[in-house]
Design a binder for these strands. Structure first.
Lengths: 136, 136
DNA sequence: TCATACTGTAACTTTTATTATTACAGTACA
DNA sequence: TGTACTGTAATAATAAAAGTTACAGTATGA
């Protein structure tokens, strides 16, 4: 998975939790995270597709949580951010003439799926609200 | 974590399991995995440090499992291969003037540690021998 | 004993992925 | 209607991963 993006998304969501009733600009978010505003907007786009945030265009626009922080779970953030699978599903091109090479990707995929299921269960137990409580 | 390397290590270990009583050359392994022999030797070096394989130099040298395949667990492979942490521990440099930025890395680290513990438990349940049974 | 078939590793290049930057069209407010 | 935003494309800079070449070191066995 893309580790940097998970951290960025978590940072965004945390900031939005702390100003739950305002529209926060990508410029402001970028300032706290210390990255480029365009990256923030891209990440917001991704979180928006997943129904985790809302954005408003135009003057006095910005972004905010799409639902209460105790209804957003770390597993959702993980899923929003991942493109590649956890341990790198099917990225290899082993030699098809070798009996092991021919089948290993399928077997690894199974292993990865299992592991990822476990990970999601674990991440599904923590809500954004709980995560943000730690900042008090 | 480094997904490509996990797959490569698993591929190596699987091949070594299927010729448990011979010294297998890095050239042969590289052929089945379809990658460069030097990469294989690097990965073997890593697995060796972790006590998962043995290597013998010189003519008729090569590598073999350091212990029976039912005593090697996927969690060990995961640990052997990982350098970065699962979700990217402490890779960000958030703005320290922001109360969220100042603390978020620590909080994320905790979250990652928990998630990784779960993942290791899951991977610790599968031995190399069990994995290799799937090829029959 | 010496050619051979290996390992181990360093140095370097190529490729690919990530991140940052610039630029600008579109939107809504006041 | 100027201003403060979003959204997105295109591109450049940077970093990480993979591949390559090269060669010293080591055991084997003819």
């Amino acid at each position: 998975m893309n580790s940097g993006r998970f951290a960025i998304s978590m940072h965004i969501l945390t900031l939005l939790t702390f100003s739950e009733d305002e529209w926060t600009s990508s410029e402001y978010l970028a300032g706290s995270i210390n990255i480029n505003p365009v990256l923030v907007r891209k990440e917001l786009g991704n979180l928006r597709e997943r129904g985790l945030v809302l954005s408003k265009e135009g003057k006095s626009g910005g972004s905010r949580l799409a639902k209460p922080a105790d209804k957003i779970f770390m597993s959702e953030v993980y899923e929003a951010v991942k493109q590649k699978d956890l341990l790198g599903k099917g990225i290899n091109s082993p030699n098809p003439d070798c009996p092991v090479g021919r089948k290993i990707n399928d077997h690894l995929d199974n292993l990865y799926d299992e592991a990822e299921k476990t990970l999601l269960t674990s991440l599904g137990k923590v809500s954004l609200a709980e995560f943000c409580k730690k900042f008090d």
